[in-house]
Design a protein around this nucleic acid. Structure first.
Lengths: 349, 349
DNA sequence: TTGAAAGCGCTAACAA
DNA sequence: TTGTTAGCGCTTTCAA
């Protein structure tokens, strides 16, 4: 099918190794101008492109890195993926992405697939890092460079980039408090994490810290867990509304990401509530959909593309032999204030 | 790094070909139960996974198919991509996706990349098929199976799956007319197609056909063109509103996809209009965001996953040597009626 | 300045 | 029933 080096060499009337040296611009290839030209022309004429797998086999690297994401149906990951791909392209690497499809089983499968896939390095967003611990340590010894998003793995030599949700969450919740809210709920659900690690998400922790700092109660019933899709959040919040007495009902909800927040918003609207008068909502990720939503969603944002680039740069430098100590960078977050929040409606007693 | 067949064979104390035969379950491998077991165990112990590129090099196929999409930032393509990936996985193929990034240059680059990438087959969403014509015909002769989404390429032997926007567009526009609209605009902008092919999009054509069937005028000024992002649509429609006398202003707009429709909606809201009272909006694709939008977007929908599966099945059957005549399937569309449309506000003269 | 030959990891005839 | 060997397309050492 596709022309091979051999064919190019034959067409140009040179040896295969000569053609290789010229086409890959190997510095020790001292071909004469005329040979060089003949080979170039032959390659063009045939439309030659090196077979990257054959090449990779030979040089021991397929110049590919793997990315693990929980779920590409959440637009935040497609934004990440694109930024990573662009950064890698500049460095001559290609990207192959594996999706966990928002299940822990899927995540394990994806990790295994990546580790077995001849990639030169790995970038990971984990839902449950702990679950794969043995795998990485093994790979660490195998020298497969990795960088983690979100999870720090102390003393592993694995670089990571983190998002400090502290500031943004604090801004978000304090803004709600300032507006007069005292009965605030939280909806989480992205990560299908085993029970014992369930509350570990830093967004949740910060949320509770801020509440208690302001001496606000946090009844268990204000902790809403759903699946990871808009529909899941919708169903969960609908159920909450249907089963909760309006006087007990939260006047604001902090959702752990934008798509869940939008699911909540839709459920509230279908329940007859007005946003933001009857319910304030804040999301996380500051995806384009939060900005363009007909009722624009307030959201805790952070510099996605910069984070992606940083992680990619870490990986690339490791690939190039950088042996520095384990790196860890923290990015900050902030509240983007939009239409979805307002003072709570006055209680009509 | 990763263990090789050779190591497994050595570990098991057999010849490399014996190990290969057993691990790939080649039918003519008549190894004894005990050898078989020893090999399996050795492979497990070492965590052996065949190097798919070495294997592909040898068997002349990397069991990979390529997908070309205009832009993964439009969620409709991530839905397609996932459905395709799932269908391919069942057949033992992997997917590699190339993005045109909504530029014609990007599209050409992506096509070339795909053609040079050792894939066994190609699935394409084109923005401008004509631009790549020479490339496919060349590939056709090279026997690279392809299937096109949307574009039919008569007498090429290239299968395609099409979406008949006729019914859905008709339903959409007639619904608007029934509601009392007579001044209807259209916003398009996904495809950065050369001027001479600009109006070719069937959604646009159907739109105009329906209008004229109902003897409705269609002034050039109601034809709005923007870029492909929400922001682009937002900017374009904002500009339209700012520059158009309210009495001339359209009372409804049909946008060529959901994200553009949502951009239009946001622009209208920011301009002080109420949706749907002051402006009705209809999108296309019926993506989840249209359903969950706080003002739910009416949209022309079609069975995305089924379309994806059909195209994938076509390709797989070609891969398996199917020589049937060129296939073409048409899927129908229908209006999903949601909150974003209503009778036009009564003109206050 | 150019070419022959070995070998990356794998498969598949063929021989033993 | 198992092992030897050639070769997929490429790079690279070494010899010519």
């Amino acid at each position: 099918m596709a022309p091979t080096l051999k064919e190019v060499a034959k067409e140009a009337g040179v040896a295969i190794s000569t053609a290789s040296g010229i086409l890959t611009e190997r510095p020790d290839s001292w071909a004469s101008e005329s040979t060089r030209k003949r080979v170039q022309e032959a390659a063009n004429r045939l439309g030659y492109e090196a077979n990257r797998y054959a090449r990779g086999l030979r040089i021991g690297s397929f110049q590919t890195i793997g990315l693990l994401v929980p779920d590409l149906l959440n637009p935040v990951y497609t934004v990440y993926a694109r930024a990573i791909q662009e950064a890698l392209e500049k460095a001559g690497y290609s990207l192959t992405v594996e999706e966990a499809k928002a299940s822990l089983k899927g995540e394990s499968a994806a990790v295994k697939k990546l580790l077995a896939s001849q990639v030169d390095g790995i970038l990971c967003f984990f839902m449950d890092m702990k679950a794969h611990e043995k795998l990485f340590t093994k790979q660490k010894n195998n020298n497969l460079p990795m960088v983690f998003f979100g999870d720090s793995y102390p003393n592993s030599g694995i670089d990571n980039v983190q998002i400090d949700f502290g500031r943004g969450t604090k801004e978000a919740i304090e803004e709600l408090i300032k507006l007069g809210h005292s009965n605030i709920g939280v909806l989480y659900g992205y990560h299908p994490v085993p029970k014992e690690r369930e509350r570990a998400d830093s967004r949740m922790e910060f949320f509770q810290t801020v509440l208690s700092k302001h001496d606000l109660p946090f009844p268990e019933s204000n902790l809403l867990k759903s699946g990871h899709t808009m529909q899941n959040a919708y169903d969960r919040f609908k159920e909450y509304l249907d089963s909760t007495d309006p006087t007990d009902r939260v006047s604001a909800v902090f959702a752990i990401n934008d798509i869940l927040a939008l699911g909540v918003m839709r459920a509230a609207i279908d329940h007859g509530l007005s946003i933001p008068e009857d319910l304030s909502i804040i999301g996380v990720d500051n995806t384009p959909m939060s900005q363009f939503s007909p009722i624009a969603l307030s959201s805790v944002g952070y510099p996605i593309r910069e984070i992606a680039r940083t992680a990619t740069d870490f990986l690339i430098s490791r690939l190039q032999g950088d042996k520095e100590a384990q790196r860890e960078v923290m990015f900050s977050t902030h509240l983007v204030h939009r239409e979805s929040i307002a003072p709570p409606a006055v209680e009509v007693v």
